[in-house]
Nucleic acid binder design. Structure first.
Lengths: 106, 106
DNA sequence: AAATATACATTGACAGGCGATGTATATTAG
DNA sequence: CTAATATACATCGCCTGTCAATGTATATTT
């Protein structure tokens, strides 16, 4: 059980939504941003990241569109929906509750 | 993704170790204590609790012995080992790190 | 010309959580 | 006195999120 697995599990979607709440973005950029923010202490594995995108899009929390890059690899951009925004707020509240709950138990 | 699943996932063992760090105890009592501490907001599912006991005992983090009740259902008591104590301290540190990490990302 | 960075994507395995189910004893309510 | 509830432990099999491995394609750097 490493810090970067079970303890973060359940936050993947919220972390992604948090980035998209700031601005539309794409997988690679989101992951780089996470690495920078955490000084390299954390990163999403690609498989984890892209499967989270699938889940969130299927659930209507985000929408995607292809970027119009004329050079470099193509990018699939994601945009948060109003449903996604609501989920994000809910998840942040749940995180606050979780912190108190776990703090009281460990 | 409910508050009582993925967000707590990864804390099950630490929660159990926390109780055993106070005193030897058994499954049912540990779970009741958790419910009381959290005012009924959280409880371990039995399957989760007992499979965690198995894991922890296999890993040498806890040891078990049968209680000597002369009445009522039999109880299997658990005792934390020094290895388990060390893991508990480690997990608490990881939790502090996790809080900061997640707080910076969501 | 080779290595590295950017960028997306799928497959299959693994592990923890948990619903369902089963066993057994003791106490409480009607 | 008997049915319901509480105490107490245990296992099976499914579900879901994570992730290693692998693959595709383009651009830049060495």
């Amino acid at each position: 059980m490493s810090l970067t697995s079970d303890l973060i599990r359940g936050h993947t979607e919220t972390i992604i939504l948090a980035r998209l709440a700031i601005a539309d973005s794409y997988g690679y950029e989101i992951n780089k941003a996470i690495q920078q923010t955490t000084n390299g202490e954390y990163e999403l594995k690609e498989a984890t990241l892209y499967s989270a995108f699938r889940r969130l899009e299927s659930a209507g929390m985000i929408e995607s569109y292809w970027g119009d890059e004329t050079t470099g690899a193509r990018r699939r951009y994601y945009r948060i929906t109003s449903l996604g925004q609501a989920l994000y707020e809910k998840n942040k509240q749940d995180w606050e509750k979780t912190k108190k709950l776990v703090d009281s138990l460990v």
